[in-house]
Design a binder for these strands. Structure first.
Length: 801
RNA sequence: GGGUGAUUAGCUCAGCUGGUUAGAGCACUUCGUUUACACCGAAGGGGUCGUAGGUUCGAAUCCUACAUUACCCACCA
């Protein structure tokens, strides 16, 4: 009689002598474990333990083969053309999210594959200083500590922000290593690294010398909170409650007034606006030329309340007859669309809002210094008192807000540095046509062409403290230089007359390594010269747009000559225009060659419910959580399967779990093969033992070729699917079972037995190699186990396929 | 308004340049205490490929229109 919980060991007769332990539980025998008597001492763990990943990563790193120079030594004559990917530098102000690790998974797959096919491979890592974003993050951090950047001063702020970034970077690098990124850490760079600065600057100078950079007056998004210009991409849309005010602008001529009174019940044209305070800067009223209501008044004038100024009524096709009253008050200084109308009709530009969002300029004293909202309320009240307010509607409308602090942006005319990108864009259009660059998926290539064909001038200046300073000095001061731009026909002598300020310089910009501010004894400074350094910073994309060549040039030596151009740019598709396009344009402009021949865009990772992941929604998932639970290989495989070019993929944990099962399958099948190989006394894989003509080996060779083709044509999903299908359902389910039988039927110690097991080991190794780029950790772990019993050498990472 | 995609099994998605009976993972049903693995194995159910036309010997695949949907750009007085 067997008692509950009694352990029973049963000896099983087979190739190996195996004892199986069962425990009697609830009326059943439940298998506890099998004990391989032949090598009980060397029992390998039953499931792949992903905490081993750190160890495996160190093995790779210590080998030195992340460095392509070392790879060249190893490969010797067999070394083919190098392969390179400038890794997109993540922002140095926070942790990585699943999108970053997705990119790394693809970059690393390509890197590992090329390394295993004879190409010394450079995956060049780095971090981006991310100007405005980091400044916002760090400023908020300071505010929490009760500090302010304004008290701290520019230099101290820069210093502390730099230290902050350095701290954040180490965290990010840990995660980069966990996904298995085989990057050359000896070449890791930060975009603000002093080695890169000169290269960034020389690009600016080249553009400036060739007349492609100019300082211009433009309507620009200004964030009154951050006090800087913002690119459109730095803004987002938000719905807010607002007002829609209908205001009468009376006609100048008595005759028109009475006619208007008859027609509409008011003595003038009624305009509708969401921002009454901007009326102080109006310089025209515009109507659609086809609008019958206003046709006869075009060319006449109306009086602008508060300002006692006559505004012309102009006709412009852009005006929508249906919106509001069909008559638009034109405020060129504070509305982008009005600015365009102003340009077409040569209207005056009057600035009444400053960069802090306060009323300013030639307006009645009582409004000066008011915030825009306060001013709007006052104006509406006063208009009502004057009988010029028709009605107010409460509406909901979308406004642009600062992406970082959510403050509504003010469109303000200001002077900024611009790059004329048209000539650069034309070059890339040519390259696309010639096939020097291709984009995967091809639909995005069309989008890129469309963008390049309609390219706008690029505002590269930001009023920040964090980033690269625009490297110019103004002879005679910035004010004089800007005055010259506004008054091209006047001589600088008139500057003093107009402004009452002395002229101490030529009014030009100077380049070069001048340090007049920090070096009071600056030699060569004439006493009558005043040099003012530019305080604006570059847009972050201006430096990251040079990443593929600035890094290699900055590293010095013959890095640039050896490794430029790179091969692939692998990134998310939402930054195709902002980053990829600019890398292409600046890269070709500076070096004459496109920086890479292939742009591969992976999909966007969404939250489980299909919405966009964002910290504010709280639906983000930490990569660390996934690594801990399922291991890096499982996550990688999920990316390859799901994050296809041009798609958006919701995160599916069950799928990652399924991949974890596959990782375990590899581990266990290998464990079985290893145990048998050892038990059968297979000491090495001499070629004589391996039946190279066998059907199974031939099929394996075909399989490997097929996977290679998939990788080379960037069809990673098919590769990932096929390695799984082949290993699991052909190798494990069919061949291992077949060979089990063959071995047990062959006489002990026979040649057939050793040949069979050798075949099994050989095919396993071939599979490990081709699976390695997809799932580097488990394959390397198995390889190292094989190595322990003499069936493999070195490390799998540099094994050649 | 302009651009680029997507629509295939209950769910998430593959299916290259048109060619056997349309696939995978997960989920589901039935069976299984085998010398690796239950994170396993065997067998199975489930789809008129968004709709309507067209090209073709042949269409999930190419063309046209429509519907639904996602993203990007521009704009919203």
């Amino acid at each position: 009689m067997i008692q509950e919980s009694e352990v029973v060991t049963r000896k099983v007769q087979s190739v190996l002598t195996v004892h199986i332990q069962y425990v009697f539980k609830g009326g059943f025998f439940v298998k506890l474990k099998s004990i391989n008597m032949a090598n009980q001492a060397q029992e390998i763990s039953k499931a792949f333990d992903n905490t081993k990943e750190t160890e495996i990563y160190s093995l790779w790193k210590e080998s030195g083969y992340f460095n392509p120079d070392k790879m060249k030594e190893l490969l010797g004559d067999k070394s083919k053309k190098h392969f390179g990917i400038p890794l997109p530098p993540p922002n140095a102000n926070g942790d990585l999210h699943l999108g970053h690790t997705c990119g790394y998974a693809f970059q690393d797959l390509m890197g590992r594959y090329n390394r295993m096919t004879g190409h010394p491979t450079l995956l060049l890592p780095g971090k981006d200083h991310a100007g405005i974003q980091t400044e916002a993050v760090f400023t908020k951090l300071l505010e929490k500590e009760g500090k302010s950047k304004w008290d701290m001063g520019r230099e101290e702020f820069y210093k502390q922000c730099y230290e902050f970034c350095m701290r954040m970077m180490t965290n990010a690098m840990k995660q980069e290593k966990r996904i298995g990124l085989s990057a050359d850490w000896s070449r890791h760079l930060f975009t603000l690294d002093p080695r890169l600065t000169d290269i960034i600057y020389s690009t600016f100078y080249k553009l400036l010398d060739e007349g492609l950079i100019y300082r211009g007056k433009r309507i620009t998004n200004i964030c009154p909170h951050c006090k800087t210009a913002l690119a459109d991409i730095d803004t987002e849309r938000m719905e807010i409650r607002g007002i829609f005010a209908y205001i009468v602008y009376p006609f100048e001529e008595e005759a028109d007034r009475s006619e208007a009174k008859k027609l509409w019940g008011h003595e003038g044209i009624v305009v509708a606006t969401t921002r009454p305070e901007t009326m102080l800067a109006d310089t025209a009223v515009a109507v659609n030329p086809k609008d019958k209501r206003y046709k006869k008044f075009v060319g006449k004038k109306v009086m602008l309340p508060f300002m006692d100024k006559a505004l012309p009524i102009i006709a412009d096709d852009h005006i929508d007859i249906e919106t509001g009253t069909g008559a638009l008050k034109v405020t060129p200084a504070h509305s982008p669309i009005d600015y365009e109308i102003g340009l077409r009709h040569k209207l005056d530009v009057v600035n009444v809002i400053n960069e802090e969002g306060k009323m300013t300029g030639p307006i009645p004293e009582r409004f000066k210094g008011m915030g825009t909202i306060e001013c709007s309320k006052t104006i509406v009240k006063e208009l009502d008192g004057m009988g010029l307010l028709v009605k107010i509607e409460n509406i909901k409308h979308e406004v642009a807000v600062c992406e970082r602090c959510k403050t509504p942006i003010e469109p303000i005319i200001s002077k900024q540095w611009f790059v004329d990108m048209k000539p650069l864009a034309r070059e890339i259009l040519k390259s696309l046509k010639k096939g020097e660059v291709k984009v995967i998926p091809s639909g995005q290539q069309k989008a890129l062409e469309h963008f390049l064909n309609n390219i706008q001038d690029w505002c590269i200046s930001r009023q920040l403290w964090w980033g690269h300073r625009v490297p110019v000095w103004y002879s005679g001061g910035k004010e004089l230089y800007d005055w010259k731009i506004d008054n091209p026909e006047k001589s600088i002598a008139e500057f003093t007359k107009e402004t009452g300020k002395p002229i101490k310089g030529t009014g030009n910009v100077l380049k070069g390594d001048l340090q007049p501010e920090t070096d009071p004894d600056w030699k060569g400074k004439p006493s009558d010269l005043w040099l003012e350094a530019e305080t604006d910073m570059f847009d972050t994309w201006f430096s990251s747009g040079q990443w593929p060549f600035s890094t290699l040039k900055g590293l010095g030596g013959d890095n640039f000559e050896q490794y430029y151009p790179a091969d692939v740019m692998e990134t998310a598709r939402d930054i195709l225009f902002w980053w990829v396009a600019r890398q292409l344009m600046l890269g070709k402009y500076i070096t004459g060659k496109v920086p890479f021949h292939t742009v591969f865009l992976h999909g966007l990772i969404l939250a489980e419910d299909g919405s966009k992941m964002s910290k504010s929604k709280g639906n983000t998932k930490e990569p660390t959580e996934i690594f801990d639970r399922y291991g890096a290989d499982s996550l990688r495989l999920w990316y390859y399967n799901e994050s296809l070019p041009g798609s958006n993929v919701p995160l599916r944990e069950e799928k990652i779990k399924g991949n974890r099962n596959f990782v375990n399958k590899i581990w266990n099948a290998s464990r079985f093969v290893l145990m048998n190989a050892e038990a059968l006394g297979l000491k090495s894989l001499r070629s004589a033992d391996v039946p190279l003509n066998s059907d199974r080996i031939k099929k394996t060779e075909e399989h490997v070729e097929r996977i290679k083709k998939y990788i080379e044509s960037y069809r990673f999903n098919l590769g990932a699917e096929t390695i799984r299908e082949f290993f699991w359902h052909t190798y494990c389910d069919k061949w291992i079972e077949e060979i089990k039988k063959e071995i047990s039927e062959a006489p002990e110690g026979s040649k057939e037995r050793s040949s069979s097991i050798a075949e099994l080991v050989y095919i396993l190794k071939e599979n490990l190699k081709i699976m390695h780029p997809f799932m580097p950790f488990v394959t390397e772990a198995v390889w190292q186990e094989l190595k322990k019993i003499g069936l493999a050498d070195g490390i799998l990472m540099v094994e050649q396929i």
